[in-house]
Amino acid sequence: MPDLSVRLGPLRLEHPVINASGTMELFELVEVLGSSVIDDPPVAAYVPKTVTLERRAGNPAPRILETTGGMINAIGLPGPGLRAFIERELPRLLALSCPVIISIGGFSRREYTALAGGLKEALDRSAGGDWTGRVGLEVNISCPNVCSGCASIGGDPGETAEVVAAVRALWPGLLVAKLTPNVTDITAIGRAAAASGADALAAVNTFKGLVIDRETLKPYLGNVTGGLSGPAIKPLALRTVYELFAAVDVPIIGMGGVATVQDVVDFISCGATAVAVGSATFREPCLARALSEGLGRFLDGRGLALGGLRGTAHTRE
């Protein structure tokens, strides 16, 4: 097996395949798959569901529907809020054998800094010593399913720069900016985030979409619009990674429709350093590990090192 380890800022990942935020409740998988899923997580780094400052109920049902080659969701960032996250989730996250990338979502710059500051304080207190090799932060500035903040921040280079810079000023560990594809020029957002101190970019969040209820002929989702994911969006997502790789120097976590080994290979070829599995996790909870093993076999078969695959789509030959 070739060396599949990659670096994202100060984090070292055993292999390049992680989960997209909001698609895996690792601790609840124990009930189905047993404790091995915690002892030896299927992901190289675990990204929990986006944490918000206050408790949120999320959007009204229905929240999901399968679409051609994928699915649409409007979950709406439900969660217990920062305080409960720190009390209940953080201790068991710190006990995991893989790094953790905590995703935060806010509705203003102040909320993002309160979230990052609160987490840093909790980690300084409880993680013991230097935790920056174990815990990273993802600023989700791209959720399409909440009415203010978040994606509207990630849709504007100036606001992106302000939020990322403000979080950077107080967060010492890995800082990832998760980008929305629902913009005219994603490279402008990516450049703003990188220039403001993001160590890595995650590309991309879901594509804003809409489905119609075939009985009522009205929008099906409780939130009216939702985010499209799954294999249907893969070429769209690949394009964003390809463009960002040419525009910025920081590593990219590629995501959007990853379901097969070939998808992982394609994202890395376009320039991704790591790859996240999102909604395909819903049909196979341990897909990330299976894909990393498949990637190893692919590289062996081609006689390639992982680093030799990265960005190959950009070289003309």
Binding site: G22, M24, E28, I64, E66, N73
Partner: peptide, 26 residues
């Protein structure tokens, strides 16, 4: 309608009588 069946996606929520949200699958 469910997506993940294991509590991961928060897609199949049901409003319970006490106002809390339950995931039907989990």
């Amino acid at each position: 309608n469910m997506a993940c069946g294991v509590g991961s996606c928060h897609g199949c929520v049901l409003k319970l009588a006490d106002g809390s949200d339950a995931r039907v699958c989990h």
